[in-house]
Design a protein around this nucleic acid. Sequence first.
DNA 1: CTCATATATCGAAGTTCGTCGAACGACGAT
DNA 2: ATCGTCGTTCGACGAACTTCGATATATGAG
Lengths: 120, 120
Amino acid sequence: MRQLWHPELDQVSLARVLTALGDPVRLAIIRTLADGEEHTRSDFDSNELAQSTLSHHVKMLREAGLTRTRWESVRCFLSLRPEFEDRFPGLLTAILDQAADPPAGPPVSASRPPLPRPVR
Amino acid sequence: MRQLWHPELDQVSLARVLTALGDPVRLAIIRTLADGEEHTRSDFDSNELAQSTLSHHVKMLREAGLTRTRWESVRCFLSLRPEFEDRFPGLLTAILDQAADPPAGPPVSASRPPLPRPVR
DNA sequence: CTCATATATCGAAGTTCGTCGAACGACGAT
DNA sequence: ATCGTCGTTCGACGAACTTCGATATATGAG
C-alpha cells in the first residue's frame, strides 16, 4: 500500500465523474469531504457496509479523480483533490448544492415505472 | 405507445440523475437537447448504435426525469423537461459547461489503473 | 384491410457494479 | 520475530447496464 494510484485529471472524462457520483454512498462521502478537510478513512466506517465495500467506493472516487488518498503510517486520510476544480470548474459545487434525496416522498410512494405493463 | 411513463420529478434522486448522465451516449443526447428545442428521435440515430440501444438510452434519460417524450402520430420528439431545473437548479448547466472528454490525451495514452499490478 | 414506417419491448449475451467474507500487506508495538 | 490494526485486494454472487437482433405496437398511406 502506502502509495495508491491516482489518475491524471486530464485523463478523466466527465462521464466517469458522473458515474462515480451516481451512487448514494459515494455522494455521501463527497459531501463529508466537501468541508475541504482531510478525513480519516475510518470516519466513513459504518455498520451498514462491509469494510471491503467501502474500500471499493473510495477507489471509484479516487479513480475518477475526485479524491486523494494519503497514507500516514497505518491509517489513511481522504480529501478532495483541489485540482479537480480546475478540470471541472463549478461542477462539484453545483452537485453538492442539490438535495440528494427525493424531498420526502408520499408514505407508500407513488410513481414508478408502470410496473410490467398497464394493458397489453 | 403514444403515452410513455414519466416520473414525478419529486421522486427522482440525485444519484439517479447522475447515473443517467454518466454515459457518453446519453450525455451527447442531452447536449443536443440543451438548445431547448424539441428534436425528433431519429435525429439521434447513428450507424454506431442499434436502434433498440438508442431506445434504451432514451428511456434511461426519461426515467431519470431529464427528458420528455412527446408523440406525434408515428414519430416522437424529445426535449428537456423544464421542471427539471426546478428540482435540480443549476445542475444541468454546470454539467453541460464541462468539456466532456479529456482534452486530447497524449497519442498513445498515459495514465491508467496500474494495469494488473506493478510488482507482486 | 394491408403495408410501410417509426419506435418500443423482449430475450439473450457479455460487462460492470455493489456487496460480502476471506486472505493479504504494511506498519507500529511488544 | 510476532502480533494486532487498518485498509486493500481477491473471488464470488446477484443485480443492473449495454448491446444486439427479433418481435410487437401504433399510426398514416394505399
